[in-house]
Nucleic acid binder design. Structure first.
Length: 602
RNA sequence: GCCGACGUAGCUCAGUGGUAGAGCAGCGGUUUCGUAAACCGCUGGCCGGGAGUUCGAAUCUCCCCGUCGGCUCCA
């Protein structure tokens, strides 16, 4: 789990012994036990930090002589831990003066521990250490009384991590594990992971034939017919709604000469994330990673009055970003994507009101899908453009906006802003609880200035507008990935590639087939996506199963009995809620159309 | 990009040095059945790519590509 770990937080003034055993204590003790096993198996191992995290624990190691842990080693480590559990090794606490503890770890050659002690606050005069057999760790505790408590522990995986989370530092190896009160709890946790895997959008995307990734285009999705329907429905809704909200859609070049990126600042701040290609000795083009520079070009096509602002340009052009290979992840992290993008030119006085409008759009859009989200304010990054005073002003404005929108939880992340301005991000979680940014609302004082954008204010003087960059869905690719996981593939009716499938009971009876085809025609005439089940020779049951597996929301079965009755009443199976009911065809059409237009989530 | 793992039929997977397999899907036939899998048969593979070791490589070694889990980075 990508938990934020302050590596000095483990050490400090000793804590008292716990009254009750918590999962936190159990997991932290499991981390110690694992480190003890690793040190026994690989003498000379340096150990760094090993906290409890959500659902488990980890410990970071540097093995001697460039040895690296592999999955095979995990089994050995687990076996050694098992022996220690059987021996009920006590966790013994000692409190030492700070300098004595430093000497102890220094003599042991544990330089990570020495570094932790050296980073402690000056007023910390004593620290505690815990001994588990021969293993000694710098640790505030508290811990379990002995290792006999650790009966439901499983080591999960090994990962490379940069020391103290900095890519310029040497890489350590981290072993992740999970620990629970009982083997039954552990089994339940593993079941939960297996359930999450069934919701994995990559699996659903393949099974539902929505998208594909080819080895020749890593991170660039092929959208298949089913996926294009979802994509287009989302875009159609967005387009129509935003036109009504005063947005003007534009389309701009996918590639621009280097000079544009120099003007925008991308050349200096974003070049490494761009696809760049020289076309001759003098000319280099860049494939656009963002739409903002071209939006500024459009703004500058004529003079603007303050009366025109806010001026809202939207676009959904494809973007390409050269993401590092190890970071790609299905639709959630791609190199080619589209955003429901817009650039809004406002006066500084209009910022807060326009943000309020955008946050209202966010509430509406995420409400449609029953999605829970949180907000995050990202402030000035290390590699920022412009002057700190402007940044401070902008950050203060966004903080006021967030506070005014009480009810939605938000966090402030220092250094998480874009290089041109601070931003409010919308965060969502995937099936296994990983957090992803979807929408973002960014404030930009830099690009309008760099592009020389102006408007004429009420007194006739030229002034520089502020640009708000905003996406609500964010990347449509990522948003669809999140939706697939959120709905476990059972999309709301308005997005479902096939909304109704008609299954004939007897596919060799012409009257039955005519009835099925006629129903589909009427559904289609009413604007619904319908099809006759086309697997000749299969029994009705197999056709229903097939439609269920493809997550078709409604399945209608028609057979001889319906034809003979001739009352235009059919049996409708609701695959999302389960169960069937009788309904006249006209009623069915009205009902489904109502569900589509209201965009009910399920 | 870094650490670890994985890559065999469209999909899920078995096969650890000696003739490439199963289920599902697909195709052909039989069946026409009332709400989650009828039956029989057939087809289908540069075993991710390249080099090496070996009498012999899906299997062992090295390099590359891709994927998965983390780290870093980010919509």
């Amino acid at each position: 789990m990508p938990e934020e770990v302050d590596d000095a937080a483990e050490a400090g003034p000793p804590l008292e012994d716990p009254v009750d055993l918590t999962l936190d204590i159990l997991r932290h003790s499991a981390a110690h036990l694992m480190a003890a096993a690793v040190c026994e198996l690989f003498p000379g191992t340096q150990y760094d930090v090993g906290p409890s995290i959500e659902d488990g624990f980890f410990y970071n190691f540097l093995l001697p002589e460039d040895r690296h842990l592999t999955d095979a080693d995990l089994a050995d480590i687990a076996a050694r831990m098992g022996e220690l559990v059987k021996r009920r090794v006590p966790y013994r606490r000692e409190v030492l003066p700070r300098d004595e503890a430093r000497r102890l770890f220094d003599e042991m050659g544990q330089k990570f521990k020495v570094a932790i002690i050296d980073r402690l606050a000056p007023d910390v005069s004593s620290v505690s250490v815990y001994r588990t057999g021969d293993f000694i760790d710098l640790c505030r505790g508290p811990h379990v009384p002995d290792s006999g408590t650790l009966t439901a522990v499983k080591l999960l995986r090994v990962a490379g991590v940069y020391w103290r989370g900095d890519e310029r530092n040497p890489q350590l190896q981290r072993v992740y594990g999970t620990a629970w009160f009982s083997p039954a709890d552990l089994a339940a946790y593993l079941d939960r992971l297996a359930e999450a895997e069934r919701r994995d959008h990559r699996r659903l995307g393949r099974e539902l034939e929505m998208f594909h990734f080819d080895a020749s285009a890593p991170g660039m999705p092929y959208w298949l017919p089913n996926g294009v329907i979802v994509l287009n429905e989302l875009i159609d809704f967005w387009r129509k709604d935003h036109r009504a909200r005063g947005y003007h859609e534009v389309m701009t070049p996918l590639i621009n000469e280097k000079v544009l990126w120099e003007t925008s600042g991308h050349w200096d701040h974003y070049r490494d994330d761009m696809f760049l290609f020289p076309v001759d000795e003098q000319t280099t083009y860049g494939l656009k990673p963002m739409n903002c520079p071209n939006a500024h070009v459009i703004y500058n096509l004529r003079r603007h009055s303050y009366r025109e602002l806010p001026l809202r340009y939207s676009d959904i052009d494809p973007l390409h970003r050269f993401e590092r290979s190890g970071t790609l992840h299905g639709l959630l992290r791609v190199r080619k994507f589209m955003q429901d993008d817009a650039h809004i030119f406002v006066t500084e006085e209009q910022i807060e009101e326009e943000y309020a409008r955008i946050l209202e759009i966010t509430r509406v859009y995420y409400g449609i899908f029953d999605l829970d989200y949180s907000l995050r304010l990202g402030t000035r990054p290390a590699d920022f453009m412009g002057d700190p005073e402007t940044w401070d002003r902008a950050e203060a404005a966004l903080l006021r906006i967030l506070e005014a929108n009480a009810g939605i939880p938000f966090t402030v992340e220092a250094g998480e802003g874009a290089f041109y301005g601070p931003k409010i991000d919308i965060l969502m979680k995937d099936a296994i609880g990983r957090s992803w940014q979807t929408g973002t609302i960014q404030l930009d004082f830099q690009q309008p200035r760099r592009f020389g954008c102006e408007y004429i204010d009420a007194s006739g003087a030229p002034r520089t507008p502020v640009t708000i960059h905003r996406v609500i869905y964010g990347s449509l690719e990522r948003f669809i990935g999140i939706l697939l996981e959120h709905f476990a593939g059972q999309l709301p009716l308005w997005l479902a590639p096939v909304q109704v499938e008609v299954v004939p009971v007897q596919d060799d009876v012409e009257a039955v087939m005519d009835c099925a085809r006629n129903l589909v025609e009427r559904l289609e005439a009413a604007g619904l996506r319908a099809a006759v089940s086309d697997s000749p020779g299969n029994r009705m049951q197999a056709r229903i199963r097939d439609a269920e597996l493809r997550k078709v929301p409604y399945v209608v079965v028609v057979g001889k009995r319906d034809v003979e009755r001739g009352d235009d009443v059919v049996t409708v199976r609701d695959t999302r809620r389960g169960g069937t009911e009788q309904r006249s065809a006209p009623d069915l059409i009205t009902l489904l159309n109502e569900e589509v237009t209201s965009r009910r989530p399920s």
